[in-house]
Amino acid sequence: MPSEKQIVDAFEKIAADLPGFMAASLVDIESGMTLGLKSVRPDFDLAAASAYNSEMVKQKLKIMRALNLKTHLEDMLLTLGDQIHVIKLIGPTTFVYLAVDRSQCNLAIVRTVLQKNAGAFL
């Protein structure tokens, strides 16, 4: 597992590449704990958001098992009125949760930047 500093450094790079970057965290799926995070929005409770999103990921994985889908979960996209939230699974135990301002960014950029930096979280 990368150290917290390595995780934060990786988020710094993502923030630099992504216009409208709001917040991001690396989250342990099983426990919902943040392993590292970065936020430019003081009101955004990233620890709570990460914990709740881990429940969503766990439920999705459960659904996939119930449906006997023989594939893997790559990412989950959530479009809010003014924000885009992306959950990208990194290995079997963690995921990156990223929130960006929808007016300044688009989904293609978000996924490209995430893909480019995903290796840093392994």
């Binding site: 919902g32 995070l37 620890a47």
Partner: peptide, 12 residues
């Protein structure tokens, strides 16, 4: 600090 408590919400 954040990330040093479990569960993250109820724990706090």
């Amino acid at each position: 600090p954040s990330g040093a408590i479990w569960p993250p919400v109820e724990g706090r």
